[in-house]
């Protein structure tokens, strides 16, 4: 081969090599899915050191499993299970105390729209089980008795229920808290780009391949389509919708997001998406806004600087917080999701 042809082939190989390097997937990316917290937990993380990356992701999953052991009401020795049968004051773990304090603050700010004391009501409806059903009015009245923001008093790590029969459910905060803890572990291991997604409760750390993470928001009435997409970095995104868990009876949809004032599923919204600094706060805010509706809900949101929300009300209308439009990158769309 003559010199010029050698030069030409070398140039082409170099061009292809550079192209491959520029366009190939992000190096050192790990994506793992596990069934935890009663849902699927997905971690996507990037780090140039593969061993350190695997160690970080394993530590993050371990931390989520640890939080689950503390706060899963189905585990007999969890703080929440012990609290449900406690007749007197009970000392809980620092993590459980933190979650309860966070939930109580939001319960008070939302005037009870977010409520962690609905354990009996949720069990009565059975939406987490295999046989959900419409309870009698009298049963709902009994299940709500004594519930509300003042039904659980915390003094440091000591929890005291207002009445022994009350059942508390930390699920509205605990899942988000577990994601926040997982992100903290990833950061401790030097990971600067990651997403932790626990059944829709997600935190987006850093950037993905040099740009913010792009999150599609599920359309509440059109499975397989997205309402819009948002670009976020170092923020939490949580969506609560009436399509997640529900049953229908006589043409009426009964879902899992209850209005503590009535004991029935809240009818004001189809879905609420909240962007906030932590997943725990975004999780609890999404539930509170779903119950409150757009007017009172957006007023509550203003107490959380930097938090943004998109509400789809029962009539399908969209209501956005003032800064929502700044994070939206794309309206509409029809990406098939399942």
């Amino acid at each position: 081969m003559s010199g010029r042809w050698t030069l030409l082939v070398a140039g082409l190989l170099l061009l292809l090599g550079v192209g491959w390097w520029v366009l190939s997937p992000e190096p050192g990316e790990v994506r793992q899915v596990r069934l935890l917290l009663g849902t699927t937990v997905e971690i996507v993380a990037v780090h140039p050191d593969g061993a350190q990356l695997n160690q970080a992701v394993a530590a993050a999953f371990d931390e989520i499993a640890r939080i689950e052991r503390l706060m899963d009401p189905a585990r007999p020795n969890s703080d929440v299970a012990r609290l449900s049968v406690a007749a007197k004051a009970l000392v809980v773990s620092p993590e459980t105390a933190e979650v309860i304090a966070l939930g109580q603050a939001l319960a008070e700010r939302s005037s009870g729209a977010f409520d962690m004391s609905l354990g009996r009501l949720k069990a009565l409806w059975g939406l987490d089980g295999e046989q959900p059903h419409l309870p009698a009015v009298a049963e709902i009245t009994v299940a709500l008795r004594g519930s509300g923001p003042g039904s659980l008093v915390m003094d440091g790590r000591t929890a005291r229920k207002a009445a022994p029969a009350l059942q508390h459910d930390l699920g509205g905060v605990a899942k988000g808290y577990a994601v926040d803890r997982a992100i903290a572990l990833l950061r401790q291991h030097g990971v600067t780009s990651a997403a932790v997604n626990a059944g829709g409760d997600m935190y987006l750390l850093g950037q993905r391949q040099g740009r913010p993470w792009r999150i599609g928001i599920q359309h509440p009435r059109q499975p397989g389509t997205v309402l819009c997409a948002v670009d976020v970095s170092n923020r939490a995104v949580v969506t609560s919708g009436d399509y997640e868990r529900f049953f229908e009876q006589n043409g009426q949809r009964y879902h899992h997001l209850f209005d503590p004032a009535t004991g029935y599923p809240s009818g004001r919204c189809q879905s609420v998406t909240v962007i906030a600094d932590t997943v725990a706060v975004a999780d609890a805010l999404a539930t509170a806004l779903f119950v409150l509706g757009p007017e009172k809900g957006l007023a509550l949101l203003s107490a959380y600087p930097g938090a943004e929300a998109l509400l789809v009300t029962a009539d399908g209308a969209l209501h956005r917080s003032v800064g929502w439009q700044e994070v939206v990158t794309k309206n509409g769309g029809s990406r098939k999701s399942s």
Binding site: E42, A195, M202, I215, Q218, S334, R335
Partner: peptide, 15 residues
């Protein structure tokens, strides 16, 4: 396997 789709992509779906 689904698609190809004409719409713009996203990294994760919030649902």
């Amino acid at each position: 396997v689904v698609g190809p789709q004409a719409e713009e992509d996203y990294d994760l779906l919030s649902r």
